[in-house]
Amino acid sequence: MAKKDKKPVVGFYGLTGCAGCLLSFIFNENEIVSLLGMVDLAAFPFIKGKQGDKEFDIIFLEGVVCSNDDLDMLKKLRAKTKILVSLGACASTGCIPAYRNFIDEAKYLPLMYEKVHRIKDKDPKPIDAYVHVDFTIPGCPPNREEVKSFIKQLILGKTPRLYNDPVCVECKLNGNHCLLDEGKICLGPITRGGCDSVCTNGRFECWGCRGPCPDANYEAFIALIKDKGHNSRTLKERMQSFAGLKLPDELQIEDAPDYVG
């Protein structure tokens, strides 16, 4: 890490995405001026007109790789930085854009234009499918407090650690009534927490945006959901929505036919 007398050189970049993860950093409104004072912010194209062309200590990168340009940029950024942090769900799991990997091409091919069918973009993937990633900040969007704490720890040369328990732990601590008991398909039991169960606090079921938690018991979870009479196709689609690429390859979920349009 950077020497004590020198501020770490930091960059914030985005591949294809929605800018929400970059905003999760900016939305630390009360601390952002002091946070920025701790670093040499060399690049942040979203809010800066000029980007410094130097070696970075840390690059925070949001977005999914779904075009050759994305991949070129990712490789360039990886080569320029000591630490690469995947910021948010697109960069970390592929998020909703990567759900495209699981659907029939017929569903989206009509959206491509006739003349450019052959210029086919890349199947959307998280950045660790292509390069080494040093740290991951999960979530769609990532929790702004978590982003702040990650940055502070990295500046201090510490090793940030992720929350490993499933969402259910925080959800219980927050005193929420279980949405599974209310007949919802809630992915809380198999999803990494650390979000303060923000969705279930709002009475909305977890869709798994932070990716699978370590040692998730998929078999028991899938059996539970099926036992409650849910359509297994809906369950599969939910599990694939935010983090399908991070599920174990051998996982069998579905026994219902796919939608045929």
Binding site: G17, C18, L23, V64, I96, I103, K107, Y108, P124, T234
Partner: peptide, 28 residues
Amino acid sequence: EGSRYFEGMLKGRRWDEAFEITSRICGI
């Protein structure tokens, strides 16, 4: 921007899932 084909991903999804998916078009 790379293409994300949100409309394609909606096909076959349940009526109550549309907002959660289309919300990801834009963070702002």
